[in-house]
Amino acid sequence: MHAIETHQLTKAFGALTAVHPLDIHVKKGEVFGLLGPNGAGKTTTISMLVTLLSPSGGTAKVNGFDVQTQPDLVRQSIGIVFQDESIDDELTAWENLDMHGRLYGMPWELRKKRIEEVLKLVGLQPRQDDVLKTYSGGMIRRLEIARGLMHHPNVLFLDEPTLGLDPQTRRHIWTYIRKLNRDEGVTVILTTHYMEEADFLCDRIAIMDQGKIVALDTPKKLKERDATLHVASGKIDELYQALSAMNPVRQNGKILIETSQPQRSLKRVLSIAEKRKLALTEIDVKKPTLEDIFVELTGHSIRDEKAGTSDRFKAYNRAMTGRRK
């Protein structure tokens, strides 16, 4: 059984199709990333999987439960960290976690034990009795991750877990997520538009654009897809002739060869050069970044769109209440 299984899952808002028929299978224990720009349909996909939105078509199963016919069983078995803050900032950290435990039907003894555990995990124990208005954005994120884990979900959804956080906090959170996945075997589904985040955390990445998955593979394979060999030699014309079977391109006094299997191509170039006794002055494999891959697949770079009304409202409010983010 897969942790997540969708079949032709679709979501349309009126005339706008936010998610085109989607088939994904996420294995148990996997860290699976949905990578794409704002508006690609990542959050809409997650919202359907966590039962907040009804699909317009298709089916989805989470932990073997159907999101439409068994929403309560789905909810019981998942943890979620939303893109936007979802805490009660007039209550303390401890009260927020306790309330969460009660909503998930956890008895008092278990709640107490787990609250202590997760607060320790995210290092917020010293501040547990402070009202969340006094927390920084990074601390709130850590608390939300702690809360998402408190009821020991089989699948943890993280929607842009490090959006708007400083690099240091981001690193911390990445480490937590990895640790959790390794130690507790939690399946993690995360959305992000940070390339390095997807690269660092995910076992597999689905690149989404305009509601469709345009590529799905491990970060390593995705980056290998379009590796380029850069070769140079004193006898460049002869070398170009010799490599003609590999579709070489001449550029700035170098020969460029595109390949999806850089190691094999590298060996091949070396053996050809040796056979023809052509001394190479340079040979190098240039792997693209995920950013390059994204641009190539979608024709545009990951862009930041304008903030919506509610984002602006929240930013304003945060400024007014003096919260740092």
Partner: peptide
């Protein structure tokens, strides 16, 4: 208020009718 600040989602995804 809860909707604006996102807390409503925390309640809506909890296994609570």
């Amino acid at each position: 208020y809860d909707r604006q600040f996102g807390f409503l989602k925390e309640i809506l995804v909890a296994p609570v009718s």
